[in-house]
Simulated assay, not measured.
Amino acid sequence: MIDKFKQRETMKKVFKLEDEKKHPDRVIEAIKHEVRKYIKREKKKTLPEGVDFWKFECKSAIDDEEVKEIDFLEITKAIDEASIKKAKTLYLEIIATNGYKEKKENNEETETE
């Protein structure tokens, strides 16, 4: 039996954006690759019964700023923003949660002629 209260998989990580041995662009690409790899791995997991898709809740913080929620589609923008600001660290948190499609209500009102 599947435990309904099982802890969800999360990625909580502080990435260092400065590495003496690597070019800054290569560090950014490595971070993006790691994030994409995590998301791909999570999407492959079987969905619990009644769940339509995996939904990802994301949070981000640059250096010592306050953690703020971001949209799933803005992850790469957050990484690029940290690079542009020449930040030293980037905190990313990605939580895979259950996603449900919105059910469309059938309007019984039809066009009257």
Rank of each mutant, 00 (worst) to 15 (best):
F72P: 03
E42P: 02
R41L: 09
D80T: 10
V14S: 06
K32L: 13
E9H: 07
V51H: 00
Y38T: 03
E74G: 07
F72A: 02
T10W: 13
F15V: 08
E66R: 09
K16L: 08
D64K: 15
D71S: 08
L47N: 03
R26N: 10
K68N: 09
A78R: 04
K44P: 00
V67C: 10
K12I: 06
I70V: 05
E29G: 08
Y38N: 03
S60W: 11
R36G: 09
H33P: 01
W54E: 01
W54I: 02
E9A: 13
E57W: 14
Q7H: 11
D71T: 07
C58N: 01
R36A: 05
K55T: 03
I39G: 06
R8T: 12
E66T: 10
A61Y: 02
K45N: 02
I28D: 00
K77A: 14
K16R: 15
E18T: 12
K59E: 10
E66S: 10
L17E: 01
L17Y: 04
D25Y: 15
F15Q: 04
I39L: 08
I62Y: 02
H23Y: 15
G50I: 01
K59I: 04
K68W: 04
R41H: 12
S60E: 05
K55D: 02
K37S: 04
E57N: 13
L73H: 15
P24G: 05
V27T: 05
V51M: 00
V14Y: 14
Q7W: 06
I39N: 04
D25R: 10
R36P: 15
H33M: 11
M11D: 09
W54Q: 01
R41K: 14
K59S: 15
V27P: 03
K55Q: 06
D64Y: 14
E42G: 06
V67E: 08
F56N: 02
E69Q: 14
E81N: 07
K43N: 08
K6C: 03
K68P: 14
F56M: 01
K6Q: 07
W54D: 04
F15E: 06
K40G: 06
K32A: 01
E42F: 05
D80W: 15
E9S: 12
D25V: 09
E69W: 05
R41F: 12
E34D: 09
K68D: 04
I39V: 13
K22D: 15
K55W: 14
E57P: 07
E34H: 12
E74C: 10
V51S: 01
D64P: 09
D19Q: 13
K40S: 09
E9N: 12
E69R: 10
K21I: 05
K68Y: 12
D64E: 11
K13I: 03
K32V: 07
E42N: 08
A61H: 03
L73W: 14
K59W: 11
A30H: 11
E42H: 00
F56E: 00
L17K: 01
H23P: 00
E20Q: 14
D64M: 12
M11V: 05
T10G: 08
H33F: 15
F5Y: 09
